[in-house]
Design a protein around this nucleic acid. Structure first.
Lengths: 209, 209
DNA sequence: GTCTATAAGAAGATAGAC
DNA sequence: GTCTATCTTCTTATAGAC
């Protein structure tokens, strides 16, 4: 097995363990065992347990940047994306909400990273900031941009896009945290989600003030 | 210092530490130091570190039960509370949402316990269930009952009280988690909360289907 | 790069004096 | 009930052979 693959597998297995038990409850030996090597060998790839954690954070940061690029949130040039959403209608909005939820729920790397951050968010301010950016502020900002386009097209109506976006995203966020904690409730969450989005459409599909 | 007071102080200091660092990162010596005794003395009060954690969970359970009693969710007899909310109006609903938020945010014991559970929620199914019950299902159930009364009085209108309640509570929940993580954003959260509830009133104060 | 052996230090918990 | 001293075990990390 070549170096690069082992180095990546260490990150992968460490993330799995960190996301289930938290950093302090995972021992270097546990990670090594899952990779199929002994603990001391692991130190040829990373100089410490903390370095493994830091590498995970850095890798996720790179993925976030790549993802943002793919979603075209590259700049302040939100208007440039207008064409993409020109033909959106209510059914598409429902699909958008559901697919956003499903992606966040089922993408394994994303899910494990989110659970790890949930456990470690109070450890220091930097991790707290990463959590809020990824799971609160960026989703609100991005979805606010999309919903804003629907308002501009007269599909939705409101005089406060920020609050409307909160009404759209907060239930999604709540249901996501439930599924992370209790996977058995996924079916319940999906049903609840769909009812939420349909009611959201009903509400904001009419003129509000 | 008498036994009872010391025993209680151990729980209190342990909860503070667990809520900041998580169970695994808190050492018995840390707890003892804050109580003002040495680690071995602590074992006269609790037989292990785990026993301290369990005692915290049990104490909070008792508080929850007492609180539920105070809030009159004792039985299925929701209608009996109708009189209390007979004169509720929109302004009172706003106040209710804000005061609910402020209570959950500022009550020190509640806040520390919630943060501890946030860190430990993935440790086992029992803790996951406690979290979901306390911060998801019970609030939705209780607030659903209250909002249902407002619907019955014609103050609010909807054909899906469950989803309406989710629209009311999910933003409160999201803002609460932000404040737990980043206390500096409390002012932002309070402003966002008020805008949320006022818009909620505007939306559901009209007939929705 | 992987191994075995081992150092170095924590951390939970107990023994027994006061 | 509190202390000091100590035990035991676990965990990170290094040394050095292959």
């Amino acid at each position: 097995m070549d170096t690069k693959a082992t180095k990546q597998r260490i990150l992968d297995e460490a993330l799995t363990l960190f996301s289930e038990k938290g950093y302090a409850n995972v021992f270097v030996g546990d990670i090594a065992q899952r990779v199929g090597i002994k603990a001391p060998s692991l130190y040829k790839h990373y100089k410490s347990k903390q370095a493994i954690f830091d590498a995970i954070i850095e890798e996720m940061n790179n993925r976030f940047i790549a993802q943002a690029g793919a979603l075209n949130i590259s700049g302040v040039d939100a208007g440039a994306d207008a064409d993409v959403y020109k033909n959106i209608d209510e059914d598409r909005l429902v699909k958008m909400g559901i697919s956003f939820f499903e992606y966040y729920l089922h993408d394994d790397y994303t899910r494990r990273f989110r659970k790890m951050l949930t456990i470690e968010q109070f450890h220091d301010k930097e991790l707290a900031a990463v959590y809020s950016k990824q799971y609160i502020d960026d989703p609100l900002s991005y979805q606010g941009m999309l919903l804003g386009l629907l308002v501009a097209q007269g599909i939705l109506a409101t005089d406060d896009i920020g609050t409307m976006t909160l009404h759209f995203y907060a239930p999604i966020y709540l249901l996501l945290t439930v599924c992370d904690r209790e996977p058995d409730r996924q079916e319940w969450a999906e049903g609840t989600l769909e009812k939420h989005i349909r009611q959201f459409n009903k509400i904001y599909g009419r003129s509000v003030r």
